[in-house]
Simulated assay, not measured.
Amino acid sequence: MTLRVSPITFPSPAALALCAALALAGCATTKAPSLADFASDGCSMFPDGALVGKVDWCNCCVAHDLAYWRGGTAEERLQADRDLSNCVRAAAGSQVLATTMLAGVRSGGVPYFPTSYRWGYGWPYGRTYAPLSGQEEAQAARLREKYMSERPGLACGKPGTIVAATNPPAGANAVASAVGGAGKAQ
């Protein structure tokens, strides 16, 4: 019995180059995720203000939402949550309320849950704690300014309603300043 071995033939260099170009073309056309327009529902899953009386802390929540929408590092999230707590305490005069809200956002706002109020909710789901690149910072600033130009002050209201805030609590401007100067009362 005779064993015949066929010679191995490899693709031509031109065929290899074409395969490589097609494979790399997919990499070159991958579009970076883009940030959605800013939207806020006020104090997600929490009252926007006192159920009795006129105490309102919703502007604090919208400023906090600006930070959460943008996302960033774990340290930035902690600062946004502390700023929310300080703003609510100043608006409502209640340390208990401020601490309760802080506990809620610390436990429910992590980026790992596919919720509309997670850290970095403006980005497609899957982004966790990471600093924004220069390009992402510019995109966030542009969209924040667009939102603020359409809603003087820190607009507050549930979806479908827009209520301009003429006198946001002092802490609301501190939160907004931390996310790039948005939210200055006009």
Rank of each mutant, 00 (worst) to 15 (best):
P114N: 15
S6V: 02
A80C: 09
R4Q: 14
L18Y: 04
M45S: 12
W57L: 14
A32E: 15
G108S: 12
A155S: 12
M148D: 01
Q139T: 13
S12V: 11
S149G: 03
S12C: 11
L102A: 10
A103P: 00
F38C: 03
S40E: 07
A182S: 06
A14E: 15
R151D: 05
A182G: 13
A172P: 02
L78K: 15
R142Y: 05
E145T: 10
Y147H: 14
G53V: 09
V88M: 09
D37P: 10
E145W: 03
H64E: 06
R142D: 12
E76S: 09
R118L: 04
V55N: 05
A103E: 09
S34L: 10
T100G: 07
G120T: 00
P168H: 00
A182P: 00
G183W: 04
P111H: 09
T161H: 12
A165W: 01
N59I: 00
A185F: 04
V163S: 12
Q95M: 03
A14D: 15
D37Y: 13
A91H: 11
D81N: 08
L18K: 11
H64C: 00
P168W: 02
V55F: 05
R70Y: 09
L22T: 14
G126R: 07
A20Q: 07
Y112I: 11
G160N: 05
G134M: 01
P152I: 05
T161M: 13
D83P: 01
G160H: 04
F10C: 09
G109E: 01
N86T: 03
A98T: 10
C58N: 10
P7M: 12
A138Y: 06
R4F: 14
F38G: 06
R4E: 10
A50C: 10
P152E: 04
P114D: 14
T73D: 06
P124E: 08
G71A: 00
Y147C: 08
L97T: 14
M101P: 00
T9G: 02
V175R: 06
A98H: 12
A32K: 14
S116C: 03
L78E: 15
F38Q: 05
A17D: 14
S40N: 08
C19S: 11
L97W: 15
T161F: 13
P124G: 08
P13M: 14
L51N: 12
T29A: 12
R142M: 14
T9C: 03
T166I: 12
A170S: 14
A141D: 06
G126P: 01
S116G: 08
M148F: 09
F10L: 15
A32T: 13
M45D: 12
V52P: 04
A90K: 13
W123G: 04
A36T: 12
A23P: 02
G181Q: 04
W57N: 08
G42F: 03
M148L: 05
A36M: 08
R118K: 00
K31N: 12
D37C: 05
P124T: 09
E145V: 01
L35I: 13
D37E: 15
L3A: 14
G93P: 01
W123T: 05
V163Y: 08
A90H: 00
A36R: 15
M45F: 06
L84V: 10
A138K: 13
P159D: 09
